[in-house]
Design a protein around this nucleic acid. Structure first.
Length: 243
DNA sequence: ATACATGTTGGAGC
DNA sequence: GGCTCCAACATGTA
């Protein structure tokens, strides 16, 4: 469930609860759940991979990490991390990280660094790349401070689309490639969102988990790259190394 | 069925 | 203090 577009879909699935009052809050989340009872949801937002359930004086931040799931007006046997009940309906969260945020969200988050946000600021991203030129494009694309919402699938597919080898150093990219990277990180995220909505995301993977490059039919290389040693698929022939 | 994965945090060790 | 490495979290999928 994790990458940014999936969070946008999660939010959309929960919009009906805006303006609704929590009648009960349960689950093993380590927050004071009693704070939520009798509070009304004022908004539901996302920042990257964070789902933000807003109340008048605080927000509940849900991060799904790798395996988190949620159900709207449904339950499953697994243990509940957080369950919000309403007069009509319920929101259930499993295997996720739940935190209370008491500072105003606009102080906690820079929404212009969320690739899916309407306030996305490409120039700011370009500035951040210039400020940190020696990092690999692999690490840059997973940096939530620069491309909030981008995850490992987006990383792989963006690099393939712009024909950049994942071991490239961001400062060595020609200016045109750098702006292409920034543009494509956002564009692919919206494609991801549209495909995910239609349950056809996998069908559109070009390099991620692939064995053969769809461009030149050479074998795809799989390596664990970057500081997080994340699964990276690439074509050694058509993705150019800038180092 | 065993291993692995769309992610992040925090602690140990240096 | 700061860096890197790794366990922990916990479950669906191949």
């Amino acid at each position: 469930m994790p990458e940014g577009p999936s969070l946008v879909i999660a939010k959309e699935n929960m919009l009906a609860f805006i303006g609704k009052k929590v009648t009960d809050a349960k689950g093993n989340a380590k927050i004071d759940k009693s704070l939520l009872v009798n509070q009304t949801i004022t908004d539901i937002r996302t920042w990257g991979k964070h789902l933000l359930i807003c109340f008048k004086t605080f927000s509940v931040r849900v991060h799904f990490l790798m395996f988190g799931t949620y159900l709207v007006n449904e339950r499953k046997p697994s243990s509940l991390r957080l369950s919000l009940k309403f007069k009509k309906g319920e929101l259930n969260f499993y295997t996720c990280s739940v935190r209370l945020i008491t500072d105003p969200l606009d102080e906690v988050y820079d929404f212009s660094s969320d690739v899916l946000n309407e306030h996305w600021n490409a120039r700011k991203a370009a500035y951040k790349l210039r400020a940190d030129p020696i990092r690999s494009v692999c690490d840059i694309l997973l940096d939530q401070n620069i491309f909030a919402g981008a995850g490992n699938i987006i990383k792989n597919e963006v690099l393939f689309r712009i024909r950049v080898h994942p071991k490239s150093i961001v400062g060595k990219l020609p200016a045109k490639k750098k702006s292409e990277l920034i543009r494509e990180a956002r564009k692919y995220s919206f494609d991801f969102l549209a495909w995910k909505r239609n349950f056809e995301l996998r069908k559109h993977w070009q390099i991620y988990t692939k064995k053969t490059c769809p461009r030149d039919h050479n074998p795809v290389t799989k390596e664990y790259l970057g500081t997080g040693k994340r699964r990276t698929f690439f074509c050694n022939q058509c993705q150019i190394l800038y180092d």
